[in-house]
Design a protein around this nucleic acid. Sequence first.
DNA 1: AATGAATCGATATATTTTTATCGGTTCGTC
DNA 2: GACGAACCGATAAAAATATATCGATTCATT
Lengths: 212, 212
Amino acid sequence: MKEQQRSGIPLPTIKRIPVYVSVLEKWLKEGKETVSTTDFAAALTLKPVQVRKDLAFAGAEGKPRIGYRTEELLETLHRFVGWNNLSEAVLVGAGALGTAILGYKGFDRFGLKIKAAFDIDESKCGATVHDKPVYPIRDLKQYVKKNGIIMGILTVSENGAQPAADALVEAGIQGIWNFSPAQIDVPDSIFVQQEDLAAGLAVLAVRIKERQ
Amino acid sequence: MKEQQRSGIPLPTIKRIPVYVSVLEKWLKEGKETVSTTDFAAALTLKPVQVRKDLAFAGAEGKPRIGYRTEELLETLHRFVGWNNLSEAVLVGAGALGTAILGYKGFDRFGLKIKAAFDIDESKCGATVHDKPVYPIRDLKQYVKKNGIIMGILTVSENGAQPAADALVEAGIQGIWNFSPAQIDVPDSIFVQQEDLAAGLAVLAVRIKERQ
DNA sequence: AATGAATCGATATATTTTTATCGGTTCGTC
DNA sequence: GACGAACCGATAAAAATATATCGATTCATT
């Protein structure tokens, strides 16, 4: 929930960008040359105005009556979120969740390359998971420095979260994508994106309850 | 992004509840008898006022100078999100992500029991994944009806999402937790919680970029 | 028992995000 | 080339969310 970091671009806007990217890719494949905010609205249950605002934030430009050029817009959005050259990442915690994320193909699309995994459990090390090598966590710093990695993905258990985060910080990472339910404590200069599966579950549970 | 479903309780509030639950459990274990919104604020980088408002929404009551009784508050929050008797769920799509979710222990805590997995790939069926049986998708309806399941977890690929969603709807599910990047089309009576990993990645990428 | 600090609950204000409106542009059609 | 519909861009209004303020209550301390 450490999402308060004001900077002009509304957080909800940023979160909607990947959705736009997703449908854009589909439309591009289908040969759609131009797209309008009306199209987005219809496909995504959003209002055209909102889409227009979001796209404006991203710096996209469209033409009346025509819309936006599909390919160009896709490129603009990618650049906007920095996916055109998002550097590589390391993952800490090669458990069930970590394994799934290592194997998730969807990230390539967003320019995210997970280069290696690290784990305290040395019995896991040396092996590969989904073609990614698993190393002992004591090698983390050296690896990160050597490869200029700026992003860490944290998929350890609640207890292991803080030490693992410390290791990432110590290694010189700039941002942490935290899938563990624990709140981690890091210097201000490091951004933490908390990924909270329970939040989604809570929303779903409340909604289902409401309908009864 | 199908999160627009106004109903009194603010969506951000609902999403913060699991975080409160998480620290409450920790504090309870540590023997803390009462907790104050100041405590939450310190632990979670939130403002006390906001915590108070959230807890008020959940129906919690505290005492000045004291705070809230830890155990009672935890119970209240659980009831509020319906985790005290959240019915069971089925999962569709026993791939990498599905497997991880099946094996993720954290959900038990929230009253979520994934009873079985379903997949179109019949070669996967018959086996068990993390002790959960995998069945062919054609058995879904019968299983759901028989066991009174109200919730479906969708972890199939983008292409498979819509047919799988149709199968869940047809089976009589009330809510779908959609981990696939695809937007699915379902009747209004069914609530879809879209879990979008790319959204978190986008936020992180933008933040890292901003700091450079 | 009086004083003061901590904290809740309620109300008021500020900020952020969404939605509406309006003028202007582009293009197909007559 | 005039007309009208589709659509962008900008500005304005509305709604939702977060933050501040204030009075009231509890308890420890004197």
